[in-house]
């Protein structure tokens, strides 16, 4: 049943070079969650519809649940676990907590990764740009209002206020 060519692969995740055995039919999400124990990225829809599995690869948010893990050797992968700096929450994470942008929290890591990638490219996004950037991430709890506020608040504290 197991795939015939499981390979030892080096994945660069959150700055660490992690070596792990990956089967060709393993998604990046499975490799991260079950192989490397990085359970912060979530699985919500199985097939790229909800965005809960979003991780950032070479600066761009991608859906790890429909990505084949072996294809990511040599790429720079950032997950929610890699966003905190020096053990302190990133201003974006802090803003999400302060504004109540995380309710059940299940979509939150994916949304944070999309927002994190946005702020690195655009430090002072408009409300519309935020909504566009997060349009591939479904949230079922908040109605998005507090998420928008949190991203704006983070942009402000990072010095990118409009």
């Amino acid at each position: 049943m197991e795939s015939t060519t499981t390979a030892v692969c080096r994945l660069r995740v959150n700055g660490d070079l992690r070596e792990c055995a990956i089967a060709p039919n393993s998604t990046l999400l499975e490799a991260l969650r079950y192989g490397l124990g990085l359970t912060g990225s979530k699985q919500g829809c199985d097939k790229g519809d909800c965005g809960a599995c979003t991780v950032v690869v070479d600066g761009e948010p991608v859906l790890s649940c429909i990505s084949l893990a072996l294809a990511f050797e040599g790429r720079e992968i950032t997950t929610i676990e890699g966003v905190s700096e020096g053990g302190k929450p990133h201003p974006l994470q802090d803003a999400f907590d302060l504004t109540g942008a995380a309710q059940c929290g299940f979509c939150t890591p994916g949304i944070l990764m999309s927002a994190w990638a946005l702020l690195r490219k655009n430090p002072s996004p408009s409300r519309d740009e935020i909504a566009q950037a997060l349009s591939g991430n479904l949230c079922r709890c908040t109605g998005y209002t507090k998420i928008f506020e949190a991203v704006e608040r983070a942009a402000e504290s990072l010095g990118g206020a409009r």
Binding site: M1, S3, T4, Q43, K47
Partner: peptide
């Protein structure tokens, strides 16, 4: 979750 079937892999 939905699984992927087994297959071999090439990366040209």
């Amino acid at each position: 979750m939905l699984t992927l079937p087994s297959f071999e892999w090439a990366r040209p």
